[in-house]
Design a binder for these strands. Structure first.
Length: 669
RNA sequence: GGCGGCGUAGCUCAGUUGGUUAGAGCAUGGGAUUCAUAAGCCCAGGGUCGUUGGUUCGAAUCCAACCGCCGCUACCA
């Protein structure tokens, strides 16, 4: 009987590009979804970008664009990267959507009606200059334990200790450098403890695997605390109904994004959302990493329960990715972006490698570069692709491209292959992909041994029809192995289907035989990895690993600022100035020291334009100077004003000038 | 400090309820081949299964302590 299944993988945060760590989960989920589909089940895969919160807001500010522009751009990058890895979403949406807003408000109002929301005053760090509350990650300072400088507000990278941001020595706002103050505000809290008993029931009914359930047991016995679900503005997110400057915390609307993505899909395809999500007709599973178990095993099901939505049947939790025995590292070049990988290597190699490593457990998985290269070349290329390559061209070249029938030995081989189907499918179903890959490899070994024992290359010289019989067995083996690998290698499977002149192989086809059938010309299925490609990829990752938002983009247009009056403008005294002298500043690579003639006075200005202009180019030039700017003491001297310029930065800075005729000292207005 | 997890060949990992000489792939060495993407086949070396005790006829497997790594959490049991 056909199963109906809805699957989600964790939403990807819109602050950075997709990297090979994200891909563990995308690939795990996609393989499982493709397995379900190839097994004749209906399976829908929903995901989205997680777009709200302070980090997105600040990244957008840094890039000089609006958060909406940032998340739009990142959304298309994410989706195209993931699609290149053949992640077959049925819908990849965004949390910044009307559906998500409406659902977030619905969840909130239902939770509120149940009395699960309370208000309470909290005291937090606040940056008076940026005019906003600061999450711990946006406070930097000296670690109170080991005195390392420039550490995050919650923990120290250097000694690993955990502390409160108030304990930091010399705390500073990460964006502007100002010292944060403590400030109180009313926050909304979700009373998680109200749902403790229901959550315990869900867990004991098998919501998670055993090791995660143990972890949850710890949390239960420690007691469930209220969860702070509001943030004060400015905050990029959804406004809390009835509030002017309060927003839902990003983690409130993020998981609702699963539901919103489903809703959006239903609306687009004229399906009944209630039936899909709430009726119980569909099995419902979330794939997540172990870092977000707390949210998905406690907050999220509690929210669903409180808002009268259906809770998922199971949580599938995986571990982290390590590369060469260590956490992914930007300095080592192992923090590899999906886009960088794609420049050098075939996405199916990574799919295969991850599948070969993934189990149903929460252990971290290890990507060892040497192992990756070795395994890809020996298994994917040497066993699977080569099995096709050593049989199919012989049939097309010497035997009219036509398969014959099987003899006794051939039948034995094929029966062994089909007999393994059940166990392989069970391993796919229970997320033991590594076991499935092992089994499939053993079958490929058997098929390669069969080739060796029958020596079609010798036989073809003496007995063509017997050779056809042998090749028919081998090519049927190729076909069955392809079926087994198809969830992992969809593109490879497509190529094989084309060569074998068959359509859309499914698991049900493993019992069928392809006999007396004409096939197409062979094409190479994979190219082996040259280790140099991997080295280049790692080399490139060493430099090129800035978050997407920090990459300057020339055509990004900053949104127009808040309205101001003519009086506001009058405060700003801009004057025409002539550059009398320009010199580089020793020890500073971005600054030039300019001597400006302002008609009745001169000013010395330090301008950050050294990357764009040489000193000589500026001498004699007419520029616009902000003349009444408070002088600022800098490391290299006092700057008495600033000159106006535009552009994204670096080499692309353009100093404003004026048409001929103006005189130094004239006011701009 | 507390709780949890992990520790099997140079590397990546299997090892089902305790049961013959602990397995696979990669890497290494040798051999026979040559259809194939320097692929495939056969053979070999390589492990005190973190350490030490215990339970048992029998332990990689169960128990305890310790060591090492990782995670959560913290002066509160």
């Amino acid at each position: 009987m056909e199963r109906k299944i809805i699957v989600t993988s964790a939403l990807i945060y819109a602050n950075a590009p997709v990297h090979i760590g994200h891909l563990v989960e995308s690939i795990q989920t996609d393989v499982w979804v493709r397995f379900q589909k190839a097994n004749g089940n209906q399976c829908l895969y929903f995901c989205a970008d997680d777009t709200h919160g302070t980090p997105v807001m600040i990244s957008a500010k840094k890039a000089g664009i609006s958060p909406e522009q940032l998340i739009d751009r990142v959304h298309s990058q994410h989706l195209s990267d993931l699609k290149e890895f053949h992640i077959g979403f049925d819908n990849y949406y965004t949390t910044h959507s009307p559906e998500n807003k409406q659902l977030s408000e619905l969840f909130y109002s239902r939770l509120n009606e149940k009395g699960s929301i309370v208000k309470r005053e909290v005291e937090q760090s606040y940056c008076p200059k940026c005019d906003m509350f600061l999450p711990d990650r946006f406070i930097r300072g000296t670690c109170p334990k080991c005195k390392s400088e420039n550490q995050y507000g919650d923990s120290c990278d250097s000694c690993g200790s955990i502390y409160q941001s108030t304990e930091l020595i010399n705390p500073a706002c990460a964006t502007c450098g100002a010292e944060p103050v403590r400030k109180t505000s009313i926050h909304y809290f979700f009373k998680l403890a109200d749902y403790q008993n229901q959550l315990k029931e869900i867990v004991s009914a098998g919501y998670t695997g055993k090791s995660v359930a143990n972890k949850l047991e710890e949390w239960f016995s420690a007691g469930l605390r209220d969860w702070d679900i509001s943030r004060d503005g400015p905050y990029f997110g959804f406004k809390i109904p009835g509030e002017e400057n309060k927003f839902f915390y990003v983690w409130l609307d993020a998981p609702i994004g699963y539901v919103a993505s489903c809703k959006n899909y239903c609306d687009k395809n004229e399906l009944d959302f209630e039936n899909l999500w709430n009726s119980g007709d569909y099995e419902l599973y979330h794939f997540i990493g172990k870092d977000i178990v707390y949210f998905h095993a406690l907050f999220w099901p509690a929210m669903l329960l409180g808002a009268d939505f259906r809770v998922a049947d199971k949580l599938f939790v995986h571990g982290f990715l390590n590369v060469n025995g260590k956490k992914m590292s930007k300095s080592k070049g192992t923090f590899i972006k999906a886009a960088t990988y794609l420049k050098y290597l075939d996405p199916e190699f990574l799919r295969y490698y991850y599948a070969a490593k993934l189990t149903d457990g929460i252990e971290d998985i290890e990507l060892s570069v040497d192992d990756f290269v070795g395994r890809t070349n020996s298994e994917l290329v040497g066993k699977f692709a080569n099995l096709a390559s050593r049989s199919i061209p012989m049939l097309t070249g010497k035997l009219d491209s036509t398969l014959g029938e099987l003899d006794g030995d051939g039948k034995t081989l094929i029966e062994n292959l089909t007999a393994a189907k059940k166990a392989i499918m069970e391993n796919y179903e229970s997320l033991k992909f590594s076991a499935a890959v092992r089994q499939i490899n053993a079958l490929a070994d058997e098929a390669n041994r069969y080739v060796e024992q029958n020596q079609p290359w010798a036989m073809v010289k003496t007995d063509l029809e017997k050779t056809r019989t042998v090749l028919t067995a081998i090519i049927n083996a190729v076909r069955i192995l392809t079926i087994y690998l198809k969830p992992i290698l969809p593109k490879y499977a497509e190529k094989v289907e084309k060569i074998l002149n068959v359509e859309n192989l499914k698991f049900a086809d493993a019992e069928k035989l392809l006999v007396n059938h004409k096939i197409n010309k062979f094409e190479r299925l994979f190219e082996r990895i040259d280790k140099k490609q991997v080295e280049k990829m790692i080399e490139e990752s060493k430099d090129n690993c800035q978050p997407a938002a920090e990459i300057k983009n020339e055509d990004s247009i900053e949104p127009i600022a808040e309205e101001c009056t003519i009086d506001d403008f009058a405060k700003i005294d801009m004057r025409i100035a002539k550059v009398l002298k320009a010199e580089s500043v020793e020890g500073a690579d971005k600054l030039l020291r300019l001597q400006l003639d302002l008609g009745n006075c001169q000013k010395e200005v330090l301008a950050g334009i050294a990357k764009a202009y040489k000193p000589d180019e500026l001498v004699g030039k007419i520029v616009v100077c902000l003349a009444n700017l408070k002088p600022r003491k800098m490391k290299f001297g006092v700057s008495e004003g600033m000159i106006l310029a535009a552009g994204p930065g670096g080499k692309d800075i353009f100093v404003l000038s004026a048409d001929s005729g103006v005189k130094p000292g004239q006011r701009v207005g």
